[in-house]
Design a protein around this nucleic acid. Structure first.
Length: 426
RNA sequence: GCGUUGUUGGUGAAGCGGUUAACACAACCGACUGUGACUCGGCCAUGCGUGGGUUCGAAUCCCACACAGCGCCCCA
């Protein structure tokens, strides 16, 4: 048997309904925030990710799906969404538009060659937001608020927002230098990974799970003390706007984020749900004022976040949240060949009148049809046989109350209108 | 990339070297050709992740691989 590639999954059945429900919420929510939809290719020139995500990051150095196309070009399946959106911003000169800030959102599959485990796949879906052309800390706060609002909308309770700041380039550099200086005498006592981190990205030593017990790490210099005035003010304002938006958060100096392009605000939202595995970060993001310049030599500030759909769905599942998925309004049971012929246009007519309608295609017996109607969770069952045809009536049974009545066929639509509530708008 | 556990019908599984792969649930058919429950009967893996090996004999033991779960690294 041919099986799915490692680290991928099929969507079908009840899960398919649920994920579509969440996708619809995302879409309508972004409409309300007045963000515009951006869709970029699933593969791009490999260099885009090398420059955008960072040559030395794990994502680029060992996790991309790389291939040469038939024209011998180096291509990669996108490992994340931001680089592609930035490329589009540059290529389409969106940064020159007058209606700044340019607020965009995207949704789609991403690819990373990793060992699959709880909440981690090789093909996974991310929803994300990127806002360009403004330095305003209000946008940092708005971007943080989007996932929080979304989680609340879906009924998710166990989430925790953690924020931190890395400051602007100057502050970050000063801090980095101070850290290197401070760690220098102790490097040899660090774990293997941290010895490498010391060279590549000393900030990450701070959230090492092994070494963070060491006194040296606990007493390390804090970024807060190295922020220049602009950076400090920016962070203060982000916090003010979060307070105005009534978002609970915790300042956590250990949040430094893996990607090279972040400046100022960085944040993560963690799931605090019993049974969640090691991958409990539901979403992450921050401000990246240097990224656009790194990719395209144009100075455009940006801020954004991305959330993993699989982790979101898992959190919903673990909190036992049932999403309202649409079920069948009417199940039509024709008895006999004549009734079947008669049902064909009737079913179509009902559908055109806005009802969700299904019927027996398999010539089941009556008993099996009632079972099938229950399986499909039909609200109403219509029975059509010789009697009904002769008298131009239908027998309609409410599958919840089990009440059964016979009504004239021309009154059917108005009867159903009265008795079936329109599915709620999101 | 490293470590670890696992893989038997549609589902939950038992079997742990001996010949029809148990049991239960579900599905389907019938008793019961216009009303769903219950009951009873029938039917449902020539097959035990894949490929090799050991053996008179393998779902069972050995090896390799694939996939899945969990953890590390990293990340959403």
């Amino acid at each position: 048997m041919i099986t799915k590639p490692k680290g991928t999954y099929d969507v079908y059945g009840e899960y398919g309904k649920e994920i579509q429900y969440v996708e619809n919420i995302l879409q309508s929510l972004m409409g309300k925030y007045h963000y515009e939809y951006v869709r970029t290719p699933i593969f791009e020139a490999s260099t885009l990710f090398h420059r955008g995500v960072g040559e030395t990051t794990d994502i680029v150095s060992k996790e991309t799906y790389d291939f040469k196309d038939r024209g011998n070009r180096d291509m990669s399946l996108r490992p994340e969404g931001t680089a592609g959106v930035v490329r589009s911003l540059l290529e389409n000169k969106m940064y020159a538009r007058e209606d700044k800030p340019i607020k965009t959102w995207y949704y789609g599959p991403m690819y990373r060659y990793e060992r699959p485990q709880s909440g981690r796949f090789r093909e996974f879906y991310q929803f994300g937001v990127e806002v360009f052309g403004s330095d305003s800390p209000l946008l940092d706060a708005e971007v943080i608020s989007i996932p929080v609002v979304l989680y609340k909308l879906l009924g998710l309770k166990g989430v925790k927002v953690k924020i931190n700041t890395l400051g602007d380039r100057e502050s970050r550099e000063n801090y980095r230098t101070a850290l290197i200086e401070y760690f220098k005498p102790y490097v040899k006592d660090f774990c293997e990974d941290c010895q490498i981190r010391y060279e590549k990205n000393p900030l990450r030593i701070l959230d090492c799970k092994i070494d963070n017990k060491l006194e040296i790490i606990k007493n390390a210099p804090q970024i807060i003390d190295y922020l220049n005035e602009t950076s400090k003010q920016h962070f203060e304002k982000v916090k003010k706007y979060l307070d105005l938006l009534e978002i609970d958060y915790e300042v956590d100096p250990k949040i430094v984020r893996g990607l090279d392009y972040y400046t100022h605000t960085v944040f993560e939202v963690e799931a605090e749900v019993e049974g969640f595995g090691a991958q409990n970060v539901l979403c992450g993001g921050g401000r990246y004022n240097n990224l656009v310049n790194t990719i395209g030599n144009v100075d455009v500030p940006g801020v954004g976040f991305a959330l993993g759909m699989e982790r979101l769905m898992k959190a919903l599942e673990l909190e036992n949240i049932t999403l309202p998925t649409n079920h069948l309004d009417i199940y039509v049971v024709p008895i006999g060949e004549k009734a079947l012929d008669y049902s064909v246009p009737l079913v179509e007519n009902l559908r055109m009148n806005g009802f969700c309608v299904d019927m027996d295609y398999m010539n089941r017996n009556i008993k099996s049809n009632f079972k099938q109607a229950d399986r499909l969770q039909a609200k109403f069952i219509i029975l059509l046989g010789e009697d009904e045809l002769k008298k131009s009536i239908v027998t309609i049974k409410n599958n919840q109350t089990k009440e059964e009545i016979k009504i004239k066929e021309e009154k059917l639509i108005s009867y159903l209108d009265k008795n079936i509530e329109e599915s709620e708008d999101i």
